[in-house]
Nucleic acid binder design. Structure first.
Lengths: 238, 238
DNA sequence: CAAGTTACGCTACGACCCGTAGCGGAATGA
DNA sequence: TCATTCCGCTACGGGTCGTAGCGTAACTTG
């Protein structure tokens, strides 16, 4: 998955591509994203930071967008969904985790820039879905089956296609709302917002006006510290 | 609003800026967005299409992102929310209208590109909110008060700040979900999806599995034609 | 009408980045 | 060893950027 596109299968014949160079390039890309953003990020910059020739970059990635996509996709795999005892708490947890990830400058600038490019590039769109979107649907699947086990949600319908539809819908609503809140409306995704959002998601529009209802008084895991991934600073990564 | 930034107040002293040039530039920008997208859109291109010198562009807009923002912001003002008789139908209507708008190549590529730039530019973020986001909250406010008049939603709470919070939340959820569905998941926002989404929004997670419930059997306005603005294709893009 | 002021079209410019070609050399498999 | 593939390096034409400078056009003021 870190590997770009080369059909590296089994063993080719000449000198193999340096895996160390791959790592250095992707790390340099992330570092450059933090410092100069997408707009001023150039292939020459990345090559220089990675201690690699510019031609080496072009041998592996055809475009800046593909390089950047590969560089940040792995960050999304760090998302987790610990069991916090009830569906409401699980929703709040994933919302806060995702928001913390989007607070990192690399992720937000790269994600939006790559999505922007993808509006005129079907191949890139597909690649984004593979590398990021579809992989994270596991979070919805986990939370859903967990809630079903608790009896908070009805079991899956007979038709599996219907289940997939619902999962897609939930994913679009959660991810879309968090992205819009944090990157468009530019307001904090804090615990208060997560609570309100979870209320809307679980009980619908009529429920958001009256006060919030807490978890049942059983066990409830800790919330993510909400600054967790956001505070993570890159060390001197030159 | 069409005017960029010049403090054109009352009357200045020399030759006034040509309003016709403004219109030509913004129209040329939209046309260029359709044909070449954000990535290949250059200031020289726009100037040439508009029949205007490149320097004239730079006298009015400091950056490509600001020009493009002004060029597409007006398109979002065309959104309307006709009364379709019940809250569910109104939600479905606005979802389909917004999705149709996002099917236009200018709007989607420009919106995402400008948002991407804004992740490293607070001034631009604020400008986007003024020009697009905040203006469209009227749709939520309209639909909400309409539903309250029908008795489908409880009246506003005493605290107006609380109302604003709820309106913001609803806006983020609707806009975010539609954008994510159409531009990230890259799947159609059709009537079936709108119905399912409205169910989730109105009644919450538990309601999405069982079959949909229709509007009460009273009057119900027509749905927007759903393909309306979307059929517009850009020709050969090399 | 003349003077003052601002916008316009045009040309030209240095700076930067793009993506590729061509080279000698290094690291592997046959 | 030989063929093959990768690497680092240098160099290049082509494009866009954003600005400066000029003469001219349009409008306000006195």
């Amino acid at each position: 998955m870190a590997a770009p596109d080369h059909p590296h299968s089994s063993q080719r014949r000449g000198r193999p591509r340096s895996a160390a160079a791959d790592r250095a390039i992707l790390a340099a890309t992330r570092a450059a994203l933090v410092e100069v953003g997408w707009g001023r990020l150039t292939m020459g910059e990345v090559a220089h930071r990675a201690g690699v020739a510019k031609t080496t970059l072009y041998r592996r990635w055809a475009a800046k967008s593909e390089l950047v996509l590969d560089a940040v996709a792995v960050l999304f795999d760090e998302l987790e969904l610990p069991d916090r005892g009830c569906l409401r708490a699980d929703v709040e947890g994933v919302v806060l985790s995702f928001a913390a990830l989007l607070r990192r400058p690399e992720t937000k600038t790269a994600l939006m820039a790559v999505l922007a490019e993808s509006t005129t590039d079907e191949a890139l769109r597909s690649r984004i879905r593979q590398a990021i979107v579809d992989r994270q649907k596991r979070l919805v699947l986990d939370g859903r089956s967990r809630a079903q086990r608790r009896g908070e949600l009805p079991p899956d319908p007979a038709d599996p296609a219907e289940t997939a539809q619902v999962v897609d819908l939930i994913f679009d609503v959660i991810a879309g709302a968090v992205v819009h809140r944090s990157l468009v409306s530019d307001r904090p995704v804090d615990e208060a917002w997560a609570r309100q959002f979870a209320t809307l998601l679980l009980d619908g529009l009529g429920a958001v006006s009256p006060g919030p209802r807490p978890c049942p008084p059983e066990a409830q895991g800790p919330l993510p510290s909400s600054a967790e991934a956001g505070a993570r600073q890159r060390p001197g990564e030159r």
